[in-house]
């Protein structure tokens, strides 16, 4: 039941927040911008289109978007969006991380499948970024496990309703996961989602050979992923309400819309980092997570 609502809410509303980000960016540069619902129109259009496959490709190309999409849905089932997570057990935090990795594995394979050097270039960069962002991600998870004394996403985000969110540890963690959000969703200082130059793309280069329905799945997945990371980050500051109600849904939307605006602002104000500098950015994020860990230790955590 709850799982059903969670999935439906997720599938219906996630593109909206992409719209909010785009709108914020347009507003900040003084443009009117696309309509707020543009992501929906894009998806609809893509799902109606015919498909073209590369002559080089193998079934991997078709399987990959489906695997990516289903792993993401699965990881949402582990996440307490409102109320308890539909599926939770001690240690699901690791499954959560590895489901994301599974999606990445297939995305990389699909990129290499078409035999294009641009896609290969994108895949190579994505693999590097992926490996290096694991560092911050797992230290972040470690801090969460330490300070909430639990290994399940469910109890991590629900641990104490009235926990003092503005402890330094959590703000540092928020910063870590916000940077991870930018990294994993190929957002601005790492990768420009609007770029049209193959040589500088990362994520876009990997999906150059997709079109139609498959591209629809990939774009849909990326909106879901963005939604997931935004929820993850914001739940660190404002934990989820315990029970499901309309109020909790509205509350959740406001929280996430807030982060979406934040992402929009960050994207408009920051210039893109040079490709060579990206690992340094990720290492800096790792340091941030490490700092959060040490602060959590020395201030006693729980």
């Amino acid at each position: 039941m709850l799982a059903g609502i969670q999935i439906i809410v997720l599938l219906t509303f996630s593109p909206l927040f992409v719209g909010i980000i785009t709108k914020t960016k347009a507003f900040l540069v003084g443009k009117k911008g696309q309509p707020l619902l543009q992501p929906y129109y894009d998806l609809l259009k893509l799902f109606k289109k015919d498909v073209v496959y590369s002559t080089t490709s193998s079934p991997v190309l078709k399987i990959a978007p489906l695997v990516g999409f289903s792993t993401l849905l699965m990881s949402f089932l582990l996440f307490p969006l409102f109320g308890k997570a539909p599926l939770h057990f001690e240690g699901d935090i690791i499954l959560f991380a590895y489901l994301l990795a599974l999606g990445r594995f297939w995305a990389l394979l699909a990129a290499l499948d078409v035999g294009s050097s641009f896609a290969g270039m994108g895949a190579s960069r994505e693999a590097t970024i992926g490996a290096l962002s694991e560092l911050a991600f797992f230290v972040g998870l470690g801090v969460l496990a330490y300070s909430s004394d639990s290994l399940s996403l469910d109890s991590i985000f629900l641990w104490k309703l009235g926990h003092s969110a503005w402890q330094p540890v959590f703000l540092l963690l928020f910063a870590t996961f916000f940077l991870l959000l930018l990294t994993e969703n190929s957002r601005m200082p790492i990768d420009d989602p609007n770029t049209h130059l193959e040589l500088t793309m990362i994520h876009e280069a990997m999906i150059l050979d997709y079109g139609g329905v498959e591209l629809g799945f990939i774009l849909y997945r990326s909106t879901l992923k963005l939604f997931l990371f935004m929820t993850f980050a914001v739940s660190l500051l404002w934990p989820t309400l315990l029970s499901f109600s309309l109020a909790s849904l509205v509350f959740l939307f406001f929280k996430i819309a807030g982060v979406a605006v934040g992402v929009g602002i960050v994207e408009s104000t920051l210039a893109r980092i040079r490709l060579l500098k990206i690992p340094q950015f990720l290492i800096a994020n790792f340091m941030l997570a490490l700092l959060a860990l040490l602060v959590a230790l020395s201030t006693g955590g729980n």
């Binding site: 290492i283 800096a284 340091m287 490490l290 700092l291 040490l294 602060v295 230790l297 020395s298 201030t299």
Partner: peptide, 28 residues
């Protein structure tokens, strides 16, 4: 930066040993 991380860990583990009174300020 990585060296910074190592120094950070070193400093935090060393800080336990130093154990100075930090009265008005936090231990951090």
């Amino acid at each position: 930066l990585l060296w910074g991380g190592i120094l950070l860990v070193g400093a935090f583990s060393g800080a336990k040993v130093v154990s100075l009174p930090t009265a008005p300020f936090p231990f951090l």
